[in-house]
Design a protein around this nucleic acid. Structure first.
Length: 509
RNA sequence: GGCGGGGUAGCUCAGCCGGUGAGAGCGCAGGAUUCAUAACCCUGAGGUCGCGGGUUCGAUUCCCGCCCCCGCUACCA
């Protein structure tokens, strides 16, 4: 049931700018997956990090008057800090400048070369000396003065550069076969269709080295060449496996790569082709999530709507942010975000539905049950109905986890919270206890146990709040894994005086 | 242009292979209640189900045309 190891990754971030809510979203969603799997007793390896090579980094560093190395040291630390602030439970924060990653990327390269898939060729295109970059012809303009210019306004000239190429064209059939045999490889499903359509149109070989800049991993045996993005960046997933030594690493393949929809092709086409070339197993799945739009608009510096994750956490608290992102947006779709939406969701669900439920149940237990966990007593049909729902919650959440849909898991959990509130209102233990104290205790026990299960499951999404809830329910630290899902808190266990679980938030002015 | 997906209550969306009075959550308005974080519970809100045709006893659900939106259509990650 729970034996399968779970190696899960985010994409690595390109730290030429500061982390934004999009980075936070991917990290939080993947963190939910990792925490859930750990709670479910699986061996988890959660990898995230930064992709630090390339021209843009070198340019950004120069603009700051820093060496590339000094620049990425600083920028990467911002991403790591973000992950820590968001309580992302990564097992390794990888940097593509890490020594073992360099070895890994070169080992991958050599495997691909050994398979005859890398050859020296020429990369040609419209090159801007000022930008140090090639531009698509479609992006350039031929101005009235007869000069062709890049979007940046700099002059471009047709330039030929020596480059290593990967024989991607060899892999068209094998990729299509992969999509046919393992349609779950690319998710959501509509992305698979896009990837298949892309591959069906025919694949050209891929330029995978550059000589025009040197901030990158050297190509083995090819002085002057550094790897150009794909082999370097994608190899990060392989680095913790130490596949090149055959020992000491986390077992490959990864179960899941969580990525943004913008890097779908690189993970669903190039990456499996690289691995096939290297004779390595493929990851089980690649899941492309959507973007978080600020009031319906993509964030950009020019629009002045860039929000840093730390600001959100400061304004609303970490769990309000985590809860909103996981709950409010169907994972895989784009979603909209606003301060009002975060606060409204937190108030309605964390404070009112959940927090108030905990408060009403626990305060009655403390006040009317002598501060000790009551006992179940014979169950009524209403009790059984609630219990059946509660038991079904773990399987439902497991399904949502398997489907990479935290939103569906949280929907099921909040249905349970609502059912428990309704149960409590209908059973009215505050009235029953005047005539039948034992029955009132049984009702409170039933509600408390539903809350306990909710609390266990919420550890994946809102770990701080969930921990407080479980503390208040007197759930022992050793009984908080899903293995204990059907194990109630023993009758008679002292229950502490409850404190409001989650405060109502005021809207920022 | 090609391929794919969409346009359903103020907002976000459910609505398998056509059929009793078109749903949920949020928001809003009433009510009830007081165990509880003015929370929980109940009720209502009267939406051309994008537009126009067609098939059918009957279509939001099938077919055709049109309008609009979105994704993919290779070297910025």
């Amino acid at each position: 049931m729970t034996g399968e190891p779970f190696f899960v990754t985010t994409a690595i971030s390109y730290p030429n700018g500061r982390p934004h809510i999009g980075h936070a979203y991917e990290a939080i969603a993947t963190d939910w997956l990792a925490r859930f799997a750990r709670l479910d007793g699986r061996a988890v390896f959660f990898l995230t990090g930064t992709d630090e090579h390339g021209l843009k980094i070198a340019q950004a560093a120069r603009a700051r008057g820093l060496s590339p190395r000094a620049f990425v040291d600083e920028m990467s630390s911002l991403f790591r800090k973000m992950a820590e602030d968001l309580r992302i439970s990564f097992d390794r924060f990888i940097r593509t400048t890490d020594p073992d990653h360099r070895v890994c990327a070169q080992a991958l390269w050599q495997r691909m070369a050994a398979n005859g898939d890398l050859y020296l060729g020429r990369y040609e295109g419209w090159y801007s000396v000022r930008d140090e970059a090639f531009w698509d012809e479609a992006d350039t303009t031929l101005d009235a003065d007869g000069v062709r210019r890049a979007p940046t306004g700099t002059e471009v000239t047709w330039t030929v550069e020596e480059s290593w190429f990967f024989r991607l064209s060899r892999y068209q059939e094998r990729l299509l076969d992969l999509y046919d045999r393992h349609p779950e490889f690319v998710q959501p499903a509509f992305r698979l269709n896009e990837m298949r359509a892309f591959v069906e149109r025919g694949l050209k070989d891929l330029s995978v080295s550059r000589t025009s800049f040197d901030w990158g991993i050297p190509v083995p045996g090819a002085p002057g060449h550094v790897m150009y993005v794909w082999v370097d960046a994608l190899a990060n997933y392989l680095t913790p496996t130490r596949f090149w030594t055959g020992e000491g690493g986390w077992p490959w393949p990864a179960q899941l790569h969580v990525i943004g929809k913008d890097v779908m092709r690189f993970h669903a086409v190039y990456w499996p082709a690289f691995l096939m070339s290297a004779g390595l197993p493929l990851p089980r799945r690649v899941f492309g999530h959507g973007f978080i739009l600020n009031r319906g608009e993509k964030m950009s510096k020019s629009a002045g709507n860039v929000v840093e994750p730390s600001e959100l956490v400061q304004a609303f608290g970490l769990d309000a942010v985590r809860h909103f992102l996981l709950r409010a947006i169907p994972f895989g779709q784009d979603g909209e975000w606003s301060p009002e939406a975060i606060a409204a969701r937190a108030n309605a669900e964390l404070a009112n539905d959940l927090g108030n439920l905990a408060q009403r149940v626990l305060s009655m237990i403390v006040r009317t049950c002598g501060g000790r966990m009551p006992s179940a007593r014979p169950a009524t049909p209403e009790d059984e109905a609630l219990a059946a729902r509660a038991r079904a919650l773990l399987p439902a959440c497991r399904s949502a986890h398997e489907a990479v849909r935290p939103d569906l898991a949280l929907e099921a959990i909040w249905d349970m919270v609502a059912a428990t509130n309704l149960y409590l209102t209908r059973q009215a233990p505050w009235t029953v206890r005047r005539t039948d104290p034992a029955r009132a205790e049984a009702i409170l026990w039933r509600a408390a146990d539903a809350l306990r299960r909710v609390g266990l499951l919420l550890q994946a999404s809102i770990p701080d709040t969930a921990a407080r809830l479980l503390d208040q329910l007197a759930v022992p630290a050793g009984a908080r894994g899903f293995a204990g899902f059907d194990t109630p808190v023993p009758t008679g266990t002292p229950v502490p005086e409850p404190r409001p679980l989650f405060p109502r938030l005021e809207l920022p002015a």
